[in-house]
C-alpha cells in the first residue's frame, strides 16, 4: 500500500517538526493495518483474548521498523510515537476481545470434566487493569499532557526510567517523583469508577 506509506511518512515528518497533532493521525494510519489483521483473527475465534500483551507491543515495534523511509533521527520522537501506538494496540485489542475467562470451546474438546478440574488455574487478567489505566490516563492528559505522556511512555511504551531521564535531561529521581504524582492522580481518577473501590480482589490495581 504505497499511498499509505506516503501518508505515514508525512505524519512522522510532522511529528519530527514538532506538530503533536500528527500523533493521532500516525496512530490511526500505522495501527489501522494491524487492526484489520487482528480483527480478521478475532472474527475467526470470537471471544478469545489469546494474544499476550508483549506480542502486541512487539508487533507495533516491528511495524514501525518497517517504515524504513523514515529517519528516526530523534529518539524521543520514536519513543513517543511507538508508545502511543502500543497503547492504542493494546486498548483496541482489549475492546474487541470481549474477554471471557473460561477456556475456549476448542481447547476443551479433547478434555473430559476431570481434566478440566485439574486445569482450574486461571491467570489473572492483566487486560482489565490496563484498560482502567488507559481511561484514567485520558483524564490525566486533559489535566497535564506532559505528565500523561510520561506515563504513556513508561507504562505502555516500556521506556525505562533511566532512558526517560536521559531523554529529558533530568535525574531519574525527578522522573520518579513525576511518576509518583501521576500515580496519585490516576488513582483518584480510577477509584470512583472502578470496581476496585468496592474492594473486589478481582482487580489487580486494587492494592490499597
Amino acid at each position: 500500500m504505497p499511498d499509505e506509506n506516503v501518508e505515514i511518512t508525512a505524519y512522522l515528518r510532522r511529528l519530527r517538526d514538532g506538530d503533536s497533532t500528527a500523533e493521532d493521525d500516525l496512530a490511526n494510519a500505522v495501527y489501522g493495518r494491524m487492526r484489520e489483521m487482528s480483527h480478521a483473527l478475532m472474527r475467526a475465534n470470537p471471544g478469545h483474548p489469546s494474544v499476550r500483551p508483549t506480542a502486541l507491543v512487539n508487533e507495533v515495534l516491528l511495524e514501525l521498523m518497517r517504515l524504513r523511509t523514515v529517519e528516526w533521527n530523534d529518539r524521543i520522537h520514536f519513543y513517543r510515537a511507538a508508545s502511543r501506538l502500543m497503547r492504542r494496540r493494546l486498548i483496541d485489542y482489549i475492546r474487541h476481545s470481549n474477554t471471557k475467562r473460561r477456556p475456549p470451546h476448542e481447547m476443551r474438546t479433547d478434555l473430559d470434566d476431570g481434566d478440566l478440574d485439574r486445569l482450574a488455574a486461571v491467570h489473572p487478567n492483566r487486560f482489565e487493569e490496563i484498560y482502567a489505566v488507559h481511561e484514567a490516563l485520558d483524564k490525566l492528559g486533559e489535566l497535564d499532557p506532559p505528565l500523561a505522556e510520561l506515563v504513556e511512555m513508561v507504562y505502555f511504551g516500556g521506556v525505562t526510567i533511566a532512558a526517560v531521564a536521559e531523554l529529558r535531561g533530568v535525574s531519574t529521581k525527578t522522573v520518579l517523583r513525576h511518576l509518583d504524582l501521576a500515580r496519585a492522580v490516576l488513582e483518584k481518577f480510577l477509584s470512583p469508577k472502578c470496581p476496585a473501590a468496592s474492594n473486589s480482589l478481582a482487580y489487580p490495581f486494587d492494592r490499597k
Binding site: H123, E129, F205
Partner: peptide, 23 residues
C-alpha cells in the same frame, strides 16, 4: 502508598505464560 504500578510497563514480566491445556 503501594498501589497501582506505573513505573514498569504493563506488559512483559507480568504477562501470564500461556497455560498448558492437557493435564
Amino acid at each position: 502508598k503501594d498501589g497501582l504500578e506505573i513505573s514498569k510497563p504493563c506488559w512483559g514480566e507480568g504477562d501470564p505464560e500461556p497455560a498448558r491445556t492437557l493435564p
